[in-house]
Every structure is written in structure tokens, then in C-alpha cells.
Amino acid sequence: AEKTGIVNVSSSLNVREGASTSSKVIGSLSGNTKVTIVGEEGAFYKIEYKGSHGYVAKEYIKDIKDE
């Protein structure tokens, strides 16, 4: 049951290796980017990222929809 969301930041949002603010940053997404959410862990969504997965803070994702 995948969902999509939109990155809701003015600059960019860090994509992390794990569901923690201390996890390594593996990339970033600019505002209004559409993401595919494959799961959630605590305050983070697990998303599809560059052929693999990454984690982003839930508070910066809006317009969550079921695909």
C-alpha cells in the first residue's frame, strides 16, 4: 500500500540513511518534489530514493495520498 506525498520545505529536505536525525544524510530533495512512501518509522517516512530507500522527517511531507 504505497502512498505519495509532496516535500513541503522552502529550500531542501535531507534524505537520511535511517529513521533518525543522527543518521547519515545520503541526499536531499527540493520543495514540491513528489515522493513515494513505502513505510514509516517513528517520526520518519521511508521513501523510494535513487533506486533504493531513504528516510525523511514526516513533518516536512504534505498531501499524503494513497496510490
Rank of each mutant, 00 (worst) to 15 (best):
E2N: 14
E2D: 11
K3D: 03
K3S: 07
K3Q: 08
K3E: 04
T4A: 07
T4Y: 06
T4N: 06
G5T: 04
I6C: 08
I6P: 02
V7I: 10
V7P: 03
V7G: 03
N8S: 12
V9F: 04
V9G: 11
V9K: 09
S11G: 15
S11M: 12
S11T: 15
S11E: 12
S12F: 13
S12P: 09
S12V: 10
L13P: 07
N14L: 11
R16S: 07
R16F: 15
G18H: 15
A19R: 03
A19L: 04
S20I: 07
T21L: 15
T21R: 11
T21D: 14
S22N: 15
S22D: 11
S22R: 10
S22Q: 11
S22Y: 08
S23N: 04
S23F: 05
K24M: 11
K24A: 13
K24L: 10
V25W: 04
I26T: 03
G27L: 04
S28W: 11
S28R: 15
S28A: 11
L29M: 05
L29E: 01
S30R: 15
S30C: 07
G31V: 08
G31C: 06
N32T: 06
N32W: 09
N32E: 11
T33P: 02
T33G: 03
K34C: 06
K34F: 09
K34N: 06
K34I: 11
K34P: 08
V35M: 02
V35H: 01
T36M: 14
T36P: 03
T36D: 05
T36K: 15
T36S: 10
I37S: 00
I37T: 01
V38H: 05
V38Y: 07
V38A: 05
G39S: 08
G39E: 05
G39W: 04
G39Y: 03
G39C: 05
E40Y: 06
E41S: 10
E41R: 07
E41L: 09
E41N: 09
E41H: 11
E41Q: 09
G42M: 05
G42R: 05
G42F: 05
G42H: 07
A43D: 15
A43S: 14
A43R: 08
Y45R: 01
Y45Q: 01
K46R: 08
K46D: 03
I47P: 00
E48A: 10
E48P: 10
E48I: 12
Y49R: 00
Y49E: 01
Y49M: 03
K50N: 13
G51Q: 10
G51H: 09
S52C: 06
S52K: 12
S52I: 11
G54P: 01
Y55W: 15
Y55F: 11
V56N: 00
V56T: 02
V56G: 01
V56D: 00
V56W: 00
V56K: 00
A57M: 14
A57H: 10
A57D: 15
A57K: 11
K58E: 02
K58A: 06
E59K: 10
E59T: 07
E59S: 09
Y60V: 05
Y60R: 05
Y60A: 14
I61V: 11
I61Q: 01
I61M: 05
I61H: 01
K62I: 15
K62V: 14
K62L: 12
K62C: 08
D63I: 15
D63H: 14
I64L: 11
I64M: 08
K65W: 09
K65L: 10
K65V: 13
K65I: 12
K65S: 12
D66G: 09
E67I: 14
E67Y: 03
